[in-house]
Computed example of a mutant assay.
Amino acid sequence: MTDVTAAMALAFTPESLDEHPEVIGFLHRLGLGEIDMNTVSALGGRNPNWAGTTSTGHSVFIKELPAVVPTALQRTLAYEEVARRVPPGSPLRSPELLGADADAGLVAFHRVPGARAMNAIAVAGELEPALCVRAGAAIGALHGLDVPSGTDDSPLEMPPLAWLTALPVELLGGYSMAQLAGWRLVQNDAEVVAGLHALRAAEAAARRVPVHGDLRMDQFFLANDQLYLCDWEYFRLADPARDLGAFTGELVFQALYLALSDRRAATVAGGSDELDHTEIHRRATAGLDVAGDLVRAFWAGYREHAPADDPDLAARAFGFAGWHMYDRLITWGENHSQLNPVVKAIAGICRRFLTDSVATARLFGVALVSEELTC
């Protein structure tokens, strides 16, 4: 079992509701009754959350948003206002909002039964291009929405350009050695640093559209053949390349990590159990082949539903894909003491995305707007 597969197999234990009486009161105020403690579970994520069935028969998902970041709730509610105007039949769907409590920082959604997160589908080896087409269509529809004036247009923070020189001292104590090593891979590479500066400059000049802002595979889930997109705490007006790059990078990182980590699959396919340079190259090539099919499908779905393109969108998006992969690599290091050969191999591919994003986009069959899309 790979590290990714093991992580997906973990059962998350929710924080005790005895320590969160505000959640119980919140459900009562919404008229949803008492939550059945025998049904309570938690999903992964940065914020405390609870899922279960209430005494009125409602299947609910409750999330507590950070009190220190009230804009997270404001952005969530801003998206919900926009979502009410999404036309029937749109590929963009989200779970129904049941209510919110601004003082407690709580939101409650209808929990769709039988839902499977897209990253779990990928880890099980069941992610098909057709589902990626649907994800791309959803993002294309999102980027074409009309939003009211005054919608948040503050810049997304990552990567902070100052951190490319030195990390804030107050963060160092909380980082593992592997995370620090991941940051050094970025900071010690002058071409990568220059690429990130250029990417942020290009982003500042790009047109702004409604974006998810924190797009990952686990934000999509499939239930009853319907694809849903959730978690809107970062919703705002921003460069569409942010969402496109994040999801592209996610597809590539996931495919590479699974291909490079799965020894059984590698040996069955005629490779070696020893992860030497030759075997790393062989597995990485196989992973990129898988990722290529998924990435092309995602972009095809996007371009079918997206607003008019701009000539540099693919180049910016593949640059942000490179950053997303570095970010995933650094996050992976949170529970590790050092970077293993698998993530070091992925780091080399991250670098290519950032330093030559145009050529990388073409390599994946994603054309610039003036070129014919290779499907």
Rank of each mutant, 00 (worst) to 15 (best):
T5E: 11
T5L: 15
A9W: 06
A9E: 14
L10A: 15
L10T: 14
A11P: 02
A11S: 14
F12W: 11
P14N: 12
E15M: 13
E15F: 07
E15Y: 05
D18N: 09
E19S: 15
E19H: 12
H20E: 12
H20Q: 14
H20N: 15
P21M: 07
E22V: 03
V23W: 00
V23C: 05
G25F: 02
G25N: 08
L32P: 00
L32N: 00
L32Y: 01
E34D: 14
I35K: 01
I35Y: 00
M37K: 01
N38I: 07
A42P: 02
A42L: 04
G44D: 10
G45I: 02
N47F: 15
A51Y: 00
A51G: 02
G52F: 00
G52R: 01
T53Y: 03
T53C: 09
T54M: 07
T54R: 10
T56G: 06
T56H: 13
T56P: 04
G57C: 08
H58Y: 09
H58E: 06
V60C: 06
K63N: 03
K63G: 01
L65T: 04
P66M: 11
A67I: 13
A67M: 13
V68N: 15
V69C: 11
P70H: 05
T71P: 09
T71N: 08
A72Y: 05
A72E: 01
L73W: 03
R75Q: 14
T76E: 11
L77S: 12
A78C: 08
A78M: 11
Y79S: 03
E80D: 13
V82Y: 03
A83P: 07
A83E: 05
R84Q: 14
R84A: 13
R84M: 14
R84W: 07
R85V: 02
R85L: 12
P87T: 09
G89E: 08
G89Y: 08
S90Y: 07
P91S: 08
R93V: 15
E96I: 11
E96Q: 15
L97D: 02
L98K: 00
A100W: 03
A100T: 08
D101P: 05
D101S: 09
D101G: 06
A102I: 10
A102T: 15
A102Q: 15
A102V: 14
D103H: 09
G105F: 06
G105I: 02
A108I: 05
H110M: 11
